[in-house]
Amino acid sequence: MCAVIRVLLADDEALIRTGVRAILGAAPDVEVVAEAADGHQAVEQTRAYRPDVVLLDIQMPVLDGLSAAAELRRVAPATAVVMLTTFGEDEYVAAALEAGVSGFLLKSGDPYELMAAVRAAHEGAAFLSPRVARQVIAQLSGELPARRQAARAKVAVLTPRERDVLALLGAGLSNAEIGRRLFLVEGTVKAHVSALMTRLGVRNRVQAAIVAHEAGLLAEDD
């Protein structure tokens, strides 16, 4: 039997929390252990419950989502953070990356993406909703063609196997899932991920996933 993923849900809108809780409650491997209505509560609830994943609204009262994410990285480094965003909030994405979040998810997105994001974050993977990924890429630079060119140049130095791993990482797969897809043991995948992150000059899986999207390695980005 799979271990249950313990989730803390932080959003100042009760209706959003109710909807997300209902979606997560339908999954046998996920349990919402606590809720928070502001960033300060999210940090305190994380201290108390030690969830595996925190779903964190990027804009909240008392302590905003970005500040809360940074504090969570300090007080609970083993807890993964997935940012809940809406269109028009992409100006916060760069700062969220600096805070070390595990992914970005649209509140109005497909319920499947919500479940995929929680599971990916729990397994140490990065998750970017395809629509969020396009916003992220556009926001990080006003000159998208230049970013695509730079990303493709970075990817060009990778081995074919590293490019395969990067594409699957960009799709939100964990090391174990990548291994199954490419018929590799998980330790080999981990070594490939470490090597490609060094060669790409990125610090975490989300930044690597962004490079994968910018370079057009995912079908939906072509």
Rank of each mutant, 00 (worst) to 15 (best):
A125M: 04
A126Q: 03
F127M: 09
S129A: 15
S129I: 04
S129R: 04
S129P: 05
V132C: 14
V132H: 12
V132S: 09
V132T: 12
A133Q: 07
A133V: 09
A133E: 09
A133F: 07
A133I: 09
R134D: 09
R134M: 13
R134P: 00
Q135W: 12
Q135A: 12
V136I: 14
I137P: 01
I137W: 03
A138Q: 13
A138R: 15
L140N: 08
E143I: 07
P145I: 04
R148E: 14
R148L: 01
R148D: 01
Q149D: 09
Q149E: 14
A150K: 11
A150G: 03
A150Q: 14
A151K: 11
A151D: 11
A153T: 12
A153W: 06
A153E: 15
A153K: 14
V155A: 11
V155R: 10
A156T: 03
L158F: 09
L158R: 10
T159D: 05
T159R: 10
P160K: 02
R161M: 14
E162L: 02
E162D: 02
E162Q: 15
R163Q: 15
D164H: 11
V165S: 07
L166G: 08
A167Y: 05
A167K: 11
L169H: 05
A171G: 10
A171H: 01
A171R: 13
G172F: 05
G172R: 07
G172Q: 07
L173N: 02
L173A: 01
S174G: 08
S174A: 12
N175T: 02
A176H: 05
A176P: 00
E177V: 00
E177A: 15
G179Q: 02
G179L: 08
R180H: 11
L182N: 10
L182S: 11
F183N: 15
F183M: 12
F183L: 14
L184F: 12
L184V: 06
L184Q: 06
V185Q: 12
V185L: 08
V185R: 11
G187L: 04
G187Q: 10
V189N: 05
V189T: 06
K190L: 04
K190S: 13
A191D: 12
V193I: 12
V193E: 01
V193S: 04
V193A: 04
S194K: 14
S194F: 07
S194C: 00
A195M: 06
L196H: 03
L196M: 07
M197S: 04
M197R: 15
T198A: 14
R199N: 06
L200I: 07
G201P: 05
G201V: 03
R203L: 03
R203N: 09
N204C: 01
R205M: 00
R205H: 10
V206S: 02
